[in-house]
Each structure stands twice: as structure tokens, then as C-alpha cells.
Design a binder for these strands. Structure first.
Lengths: 227, 227
DNA sequence: TAGATTGTTAATCGATTAACAATC
DNA sequence: TAGATTGTTAATCGATTAACAATC
């Protein structure tokens, strides 16, 4: 009676391959909302409640969850712990991800100290900086090491994810070296467009771009009031 | 002979109202690419070149620019300086935007020191923190002030944009106070869902969510290799 | 004029949403 | 059984892209 896609009750890794990007980007938001609910002692929630906590509408939430499987109970809702685990497993944060941060300026230090990484399965294994003057400095309990140690560290810790927090001018070089070492996922805070091989994923966080998007809308609000 | 929308040769603020969100989010990227080209001494570029520098395909670039007006020359390309100015004006970064940062921990300090804001029309006018122990500390040339000064500062400097870099638990309170003071755009670095009135824009930057999205894709790469 | 490149069209693709049948 | 809520459908909306007429 069920549709073809849903027939495989526990979706195998293969079957689950086609989760839309927009859904993938929201799964961590749901995960965080479930963690909050769990900490508040909530053991069951409806799609309406969870959607509220995550800041989306409930139709979208249910549609998103339907790509993972059927983890709810009609007429009842979702078991918070169970759903939390299923989403964590789907994202991959039930395992430990060693991460290396390159560029230990203000932002790099803030990232090294950010407790939100550790609690979500990410472990910062090394801090690297090209500036010799910074070496042996200790940040967040880790010694800052020369950039040339990258290869050794990546191979020692099986690092798959690299974070770039260098100035723009250095970012492409760092990315090239990361790729050469076998890193296949990069989070880039430098304001520059990286070119990498197809199999390497790059995500970009650009603080001033976010402000500019706000400014665009802000400008129109004010204009509207003036005209 | 031209279509209705394009008839208003210089689009008035009113006419330009309907730029798609996806396009708005890319305008700052084009602006940065044009600034780089300009600094390299390039005075003219084709959509192909600019698209390359911005990391998008040229069809998308031309489509995006078409929402602003006709700023290129067929057979020739775009004048780098002219296009740069037109996009800056459209975004609103030809004017000065006073910004206040609340929460001067590691991340708040990194933001306060980030030079990319100033060079793009954003001016940090005050740093606020609820922790008394931090007051009178000087960060990026600004004294850290009590959170209770918010209202005075917003009114003195006509602040329209606020940045939240506090722990999650404080973020909603800060947002409420900001809204009460008349701030209508918020950039939120705290890992929490803010609820604000409809007319207030909130953008969220969540470091650990970005890493989780990378982890999701990373997990599948590895799985694919193993299975 | 011939070559180059924009600005626009139209087709396609992916994301969102309301509504509701399925089912606890 | 009656009430509640999921999981899915189908319609709608918005974004992307290739192709090309317009035009420098």
C-alpha cells in the first residue's frame, strides 16, 4: 500500500542518498531544538511543537523528516530522544570528527575556544599558523604549530575537515595544501572564493556579507518610510 | 520595444523593490569580486570573467544583474568601477551603517576587530556586555560598556543594526531590548532561535551548523568508499 | 560589416506549503 | 470509537540554466 520509496522501512545508507540540500541544512537546527527539548525534560513532542522550537512551519518539518524515515507515531507525535538520535546518526555526529584550524588570529582563537564544536562531535586536534611569532603560544589548551605540520597532523589524526581562518590572500594556498593532504571538507571564513577539486566540499561563512544583506533590507525599510 | 519592467531606465527605489532573495544574497559577492578586479587594475570585464571571480556561472550573474538595470555594454562587457558603484548603491553600502555588538567574549572581540566591516560601510559604534568585570576593558579601541547603555547608544548614533554574540541563554533578552530600542536588523551568532516582530530582520550565523552540514556530506563520501 | 557579449526568454529543476488520507 | 497527528500528495512558488535575439 505504501509508495515505492518508503517500502525500504529502515532506509539503508544507499537508499537515503537523496535528501535535498535544503533539508540537510535544517537537520542540525532540528537536532539542536530536540536537544533543548530533551534538556527541558520533554519526552514527546508534536511536529507543531518541534517546528516552533526550530523556527520553521510544521509542514516543512514533517516533509523534511519524511526523507529520513517514519520516526513518529500518528496521533501521538515524536519521541524526543529517539528522533534526536536518528537525526544525529543521519548527519553523522554520533561519531567523532577531528578538525584542524588554520589561521589563529582573532577569529581563529574564537573558533578554537568555541565550546559548541566539542559538544557536537567535533574535536579540534590542532591549531596552525604561518606566523612564527605565534608558535608555542597556547590557545584553548592547544599549542599553535607551524603550518608545515599540516600533513603530519592530518595523517596522524585522520582529519577530514579543515577550517580556514586566515587572511584572504592566504586562503587559496591553505586550501590547496589541505586538499593535497587529503582533506575533503573545508569551512572557509576567509573572504575569498576557493577553487578546489569537485570531490571537495567547501562551505563559506562571510561575516560582512551577512551584514550587507541586512543593510540591503534595512535601506528599503527606511526608504519606504521616507518616500 | 523593451519589456514593461525595463522601461523605467533608471529604476526608481520603488521599481527595484522586487529583487529575489537569492540574488540579494549574491550581490555582496559580486561587489567583492569587482573590488578585487579593480585593485588588480582591471577596468572592464565580461560576465564570464566576473562570474569566474565570484564563483558562479555567467548566466546566473547576468540574470542577477538584470534585476538592477542594464549596466553593461553588449559586445564589450561591464565597466568595473561603474558596476561596482551601482551594486554598492543598490545594497546600500555607499552610506555608513552604525552597528552595535552585544556580548564581548571571544567571538565578540573577533567581530569588533574584524577590519572587513569598516571597509564595507559598517562602523562599530559600541561594544556592550552584561558582565561588569568586562566594563572599561578596551577592545578594538572601544571601551566595553554596560548593556543598560544600549538605549542611549542606539538613539545617539541612530543604530539600525545590532549584532548578538552572547551565549544562547541571553540572546532572546538582548533581541527584545534591541527591538524595544528601535533596532530593526539583527545578526545573531548565538545558537538560538529568536522570536521578533515581523518588521525586524534576523540573520543567523551558526558555526557548528556549518560544520554539521559538512559532516553529513563527509560521512557519505566515506561510506561510499567503504561499501 | 563581423565578432563579441549582453539582457531576456522559456524550459527545467528544486523548495515550500496546504490539505488530507492514513493510522495511532 | 473519537480525537489527534503523522506522512504524503499535489499545487504553487521561486531559482537556475541554456540558448539566442538584440545590439555594441
Amino acid at each position: 500500500m505504501e509508495k515505492t520509496r518508503a517500502v525500504t522501512a529502515r532506509p539503508s545508507p544507499e537508499a537515503a542518498r537523496d535528501i535535498p540540500e535544503a533539508t540537510v541544512a535544517r537537520l542540525p537546527v532540528y537536532l539542536r531544538a530536540l536537544t533543548t527539548l530533551s534538556e527541558q525534560g520533554t519526552s514527546t513532542c508534536s511536529s507543531e511543537e518541534l517546528a516552533g522550537a526550530a523556527g520553521v512551519n510544521s509542514a516543512k518539518l514533517r516533509k523534511d523528516l519524511s526523507y529520513l524515515g517514519s520516526y513518529g507515531t500518528r496521533g501521538v507525535g515524536y519521541d524526543v530522544e529517539y528522533l534526536r538520535y536518528q537525526i544525529a546518526r543521519e548527519i553523522g555526529v554520533t561519531q567523532d570528527w577531528p578538525v584542524v584550524i588554520v589561521g589563529i588570529g582573532n577569529l581563529g582563537q574564537a573558533l578554537a575556544n568555541y565550546s559548541g564544536f566539542r559538544s557536537r562531535g567535533f574535536r579540534v586536534v590542532a591549531l596552525l599558523d604561518a606566523d612564527e611569532a605565534r608558535h608555542d603560544e597556547v590557545v584553548a589548551g592547544l599549542e599553535v604549530r607551524p603550518f608545515s605540520d599540516l600533513e603530519q597532523i592530518v595523517s596522524d589524526h585522520a582529519v577530514a575537515i579543515g577550517v580556514i581562518a586566515t587572511p584572504a590572500v592566504a586562503a587559496q594556498d591553505v586550501a590547496d595544501r589541505m586538499v593535497a593532504c587529503g582533506i575533503t571538507s573545508i569551512l572557509n571564513f576567509a573572504p575569498s572564493v576557493l577553487s578546489v577539486p569537485e570531490q571537495v566540499d567547501v562551505r563559506k561563512v562571510d561575516l560582512s556579507i551577512e551584514l550587507q544583506i541586512l543593510a540591503y533590507h534595512e535601506q528599503r525599510k527606511t526608504q519606504g518610510a521616507a518616500s
